[in-house]
C-alpha cells in the first residue's frame, strides 16, 4: 500500500480510538494514538496474513503467516481498530469496546474469541516471552512466518522482560522483531522520573540483540522504511529490537506529549476538538 493510503487508514484509526474511548468513558488513548503508524504499517503493508478470496481469515495456530503480539495490552483501542479495519471483525463492533458482553474487553483476551487475538495481555511484561514461544514454535514447524511484538517503555521496568531478553539471543530466535514504544511517558509521569530505563538500546545490545531505531515513529514513511530494514536483518542468529520513538497522544494536539492522557477519556467537547483534527477517510463505525 502507498504511504498516502496508509496515512489515510491511520487517520481513520485515530478517529476510532478517540471515539471508542469516549464511547465508554474509559480506556487508554495516549499510547494508542502514538502507536497508530506502527500497527497500520504492520497490518496493511508489512505482515504476511492468511487470506482467502482477498479477505483475512483467522485461526489460533497462525501457521505460515506473520503474527503480532501486543504486550502492553492497555493500548487495545489501536489494535482493535486496526484489526477491524483490516477485516478481522466488523467495524461496528468497535462501538462495544469495554462494555458488558463485548468481545472487545478493556485489555485484549482470547476468552471471547475475538479474531486476531492470540493471547491475553494487560498485566505487563509477559508478551515478549509469549512471542518468543510462538517464534520458537514456528522454527520447530519449519514455518517461515515472522513474529512481531510490541512493548511499552514503562513496561521495560518489569523483570520478566529481561528474562526474555536473555533467552532470545541465547536461543538465536532470529525470526522475531520486537518493538519498544519509546514515548517517554508512563502513568505516574515521565519515564525518566518514575524509573529511569536509561539507555535501552545499549542494554539490548549488551544482551545480544540487533538494535535499530525508528526516530520518527509517527511518520508513516519512516515507519514503513524501518520495518523493511528490520525484516532484512532477520535470519542471522539474533533477535531484532526496534526502538520506536513516538509521541504519546500523537495526532490530537491537546493529548500530545503528556502522560496525562495515558488512561483518560475525552468529554464531548474534547472529542469534537479531536475529531476536527482527524479526517474521516474510511467512514466512522
Amino acid at each position: 500500500m502507498e504511504i498516502e493510503q496508509l496515512e489515510k487508514v491511520a487517520s481513520q484509526v485515530r478517529r476510532d480510538i478517540v471515539r471508542m474511548v469516549h464511547g465508554c468513558q474509559s480506556g487508554h488513548p495516549g499510547g494508542s494514538l502514538g502507536c497508530t503508524e506502527l500497527l497500520v504499517a504492520l497490518y496493511f503493508e508489512r505482515m504476511k496474513l492468511k487470506e482467502n478470496d482477498g479477505k483475512v481469515v483467522f485461526d489460533m495456530d497462525g501457521r505460515d503467516e506473520d503474527l503480532f503480539f501486543l504486550s502492553n495490552g492497555h493500548i487495545s483501542p489501536v489494535w482493535y481498530s486496526v484489526l477491524a479495519r483490516r477485516g478481522y471483525f466488523p467495524v461496528s463492533e468497535l462501538a462495544t469496546f469495554r462494555k458488558l458482553d463485548s468481545r472487545l474487553q478493556g485489555h485484549p483476551t482470547t476468552h471471547e474469541h475475538l479474531e486476531g487475538i492470540r493471547i491475553a495481555s494487560g498485566s505487563l511484561g509477559q508478551g515478549l516471552s509469549v512471542a518468543l514461544g510462538a517464534a520458537t514454535a514456528k522454527k520447530l514447524n519449519n514455518d517461515k512466518g515472522i513474529v512481531y511484538v510490541l512493548m511499552g517503555d514503562g513496561e521495560q521496568q518489569e523483570g520478566q522482560v529481561w528474562e526474555a531478553a536473555t533467552f532470545a539471543p541465547h536461543h538465536q530466535v532470529d525470526n522475531l522483531i520486537a518493538f519498544i514504544d519509546l514515548n517517554g511517558q508512563q502513568i505516574d509521569g515521565p519515564t525518566v522520573k518514575v524509573m529511569n530505563n536509561r539507555d535501552l538500546g545499549a542494554k539490548y545490545e549488551a544482551f545480544g540483540w540487533e538494535v535499530i531505531s525508528i526516530e520518527e515513529g509517527n511518520d508513516m514513511a519512516a515507519v514503513a522504511k524501518g520495518l523493511y530494514e528490520a525484516k532484512g536483518r532477520l535470519g542471522h542468529g539474533r533477535p531484532i529490537m526496534v526502538l520506536l520513538h513516538t509521541g504519546m497522544g500523537y495526532g490530537v494536539d491537546f493529548m500530545m506529549g503528556s502522560h496525562k492522557w495515558h488512561g483518560v477519556a475525552p468529554n464531548d467537547e474534547q472529542l469534537a476538538a479531536a475529531l476536527a483534527q482527524l479526517d474521516e477517510t474510511l467512514g466512522d463505525y
Binding site: 515478549l128 514461544g133 514454535a137 520447530l140 528474562e163
Partner: peptide, 28 residues
C-alpha cells in the same frame, strides 16, 4: 534435543514461552 528448551533460572519467561509455543500446535 531439538524439542527441549532450557530456560535458565527464569520461570516467568518459561511460562510465557510455553504459552507462545501452543500457538503453532506444540504441547509444552
Amino acid at each position: 534435543p531439538e524439542r527441549f528448551i532450557q530456560c535458565g533460572i527464569s520461570e516467568a519467561n518459561m511460562i510465557g514461552v510455553s504459552a507462545g509455543l501452543t500457538i503453532g500446535g506444540k504441547i509444552p
